[in-house]
């Protein structure tokens, strides 16, 4: 049911893990399927004094499509400027993965959401201007994550999930 590219990224996911002292962390969840994804970014300036994503890692509890999407999202975002990274869509990820089954398109949305959320975290922590659409997305993502943690995680996992980092 999955493409060759999905199976490749699922079998050998790139950029798994966490970044100590990350500049931004994005945590997202989908309360229907219960999947959760975290993306960590490290930001630096390039020669034009633009913010670029220097390093990026992820942790995902989810289906094969979610794991492959997070892996692909980190590959695509690495080295991009923040403003270019924000332009990435779930369709970009799905296309790079050779397509996703219709029910699994939301898995790639989870990956772009996690990236947006990590960037939001970076911008707001550094008192940088947050674009309106990023702010709007952040509001939605925050509610989704709260719902996911409430509906899909047991209290012990919730506690630990909040404690981490």
């Amino acid at each position: 049911m999955y493409s060759k590219e999905v199976m490749d990224h699922f079998a050998n996911p790139r950029n798994i893990g966490i970044i100590e002292n990350a500049d931004g962390v994005g945590k997202v969840g989908n309360y229907v399927c219960g999947d959760i994804m975290w993306i960590y970014i490290k930001v630096r300036k390039n020669e034009n004094d633009e913010d670029i994503i220097d390093d990026i890692r992820f942790k995902t509890m989810g289906c094969a499509a979610a794991i492959a999407s997070s892996s692909m999202a980190t590959e695509l975002a690495k080295g991009k400027t923040i403003s270019d990274a924000l332009k990435m869509t779930k369709q970009n990820i799905a296309d790079s993965l050779g397509g996703l089954p219709a029910v699994k398109l939301h898995c790639s949305l989870l990956a772009t959401d996690a990236l947006v959320e990590a960037i939001y975290d970076y911008l707001s922590k550094n008192s940088l201007p947050v674009p309106d659409d990023v702010l709007r997305k952040h509001e939605r993502i925050k509610i989704d994550l709260e719902k996911t943690e409430k509906m899909c995680l047991n209290p012990k996992a919730q506690e630990n999930s909040l404690k981490k980092d």
Partner: peptide, 11 residues
């Protein structure tokens, strides 16, 4: 392997 990849704690 999947647990190392998972953000859910307490496991």
């Amino acid at each position: 392997l999947l647990r190392k990849m998972s953000p859910v704690g307490g496991i």
